[in-house]
């Protein structure tokens, strides 16, 4: 069974020999400084160079045993393409927003429609996707989208947006509809260039911040619209939600994605029970992965498999300082090489 078959089968609910182990990329960054140094494909140059981006992601897969290719290495690509100002960071700091294009939610009407083939780094990511899909037919290539609400917090100050949820709900819906339409267009382009699985990361849409009422109104419908379109194109979807999900447990069942990825504080046994019928991905602490020791990483990974995790993965983005050996320790547990 190839890595790609295994992941796709799990997401379709078919039986497999063992759980896949992946790190999707995007917000859930899949890069280590060690590998950057070995390959000469270093942050921050990598973020704007399709060839180097591809090389780093390939080398990460080979060195760590992770069973996917995941790009890009940040969650700012769409926001930058919409006109946000991004600082590229350094060898251990991923690109991040420094200037929001919108002062208020109402201004969303000034945003221009995205052209994935032209705007910001989107063409670089599409090109990298094409390179990877030419080279790999047996390894899943994961495409990354930022969920509409989280994308909105990269375009307008989060406090402004969160207040608007209560005070100008119609404008927020206008913004989110617009972002959803554009993310769908970018998602279609990613699939056109060879993406096998789509991950939508929505870190700001945590139940802890929003609570169930606002989550249901401003998060669910938009995530589902994206996921439905990806399904029409024949691709499965994983949705990653940061933070505690207990305030929104029941609502996660209403997601149409095949799989939900959760943060490190989420108890997998409990989540499996509550969100039954969905595959669960997660949730090895990225702090544990960075600091080790190896035996604790392996115990945590084993424990997750025993709890019935469907896809083993880091709970969040990897720190670039994470030693390759630590990630290998996690992947070895799944593969039975310990």
């Amino acid at each position: 069974m190839t890595e790609k078959e295994r992941l796709l089968k799990v997401l379709r609910g078919e039986s497999v020999d063992r759980a896949p182990v992946i790190c999707p990329g995007g917000m859930m960054t899949m890069a280590c400084r060690e590998v950057m140094i070995q390959t000469g494909c270093r942050w921050p140059a990598v973020h704007r160079d399709a060839q180097k981006m591809a090389e780093l992601s390939i080398a990460m897969r080979i060195e760590t045993g992770l069973e996917n290719l995941g790009i890009p290495f940040c969650m700012t690509a769409e926001a930058e393409a919409f006109g946000g100002e991004v600082e590229d960071g350094d060898e251990i700091t991923s690109p991040h927003m420094v200037q929001y294009p919108l002062k208020s939610v109402k201004q969303w009407k000034d945003l221009k429609e995205l052209n994935p083939h032209k705007d910001g780094r989107l063409p670089t990511i599409l090109e990298c996707t094409a390179i990877l899909s030419r080279l790999f037919s047996d390894t899943p290539i994961i495409g990354n989208l930022v969920g509409p609400l989280s994308l909105a917090t990269s375009l307008v100050e989060a406090t402004v947006l969160f207040k608007a949820l209560k005070q100008e709900p119609e404008d927020v819906h206008g913004l989110l509809r617009f972002l959803t339409d554009n993310s769908i267009r970018y998602g279609e382009a990613l699939i056109g260039h060879g993406v096998d699985v789509m991950v939508i990361s929505d870190p700001s849409a945590t139940g802890e911040i929003l609570g169930p009422g606002l989550f249901k109104e401003f998060v669910l419908p938009y995530l589902n619209r994206i996921a439905n379109r990806m399904h029409e194109l024949g691709k499965p979807v994983i949705v990653h939600i940061c933070g505690s999900v207990s305030p929104v447990y029941e609502l996660l069942k209403e997601l149409v994605s095949e799989c939900v990825s959760v943060d490190s504080m989420v108890n997998i046994r409990e989540a499996k029970n509550v969100i039954s019928g969905k595959k669960l991905m997660g949730n090895v602490s990225t702090i544990l992965l960075q600091n080790g020791p190896i035996d604790r990483i392996q115990n945590a990974s084993r424990n997750l498999l025993n709890c019935g995790i469907d896809i083993l993965a880091p709970a969040c983005g990897l720190s670039a300082k994470t030693p390759v050996g630590h990630i290998k320790a996690m992947t070895a547990v799944v593969k039975g090489n310990t």
Binding site: F162, K163, K166
Partner: peptide
């Protein structure tokens, strides 16, 4: 008690 969340807190503070 998880009756109010972040958006509510921001508006109460305002």
């Amino acid at each position: 008690n998880e009756e109010y969340f972040v958006p509510e807190i921001l508006l109460c503070a305002d």
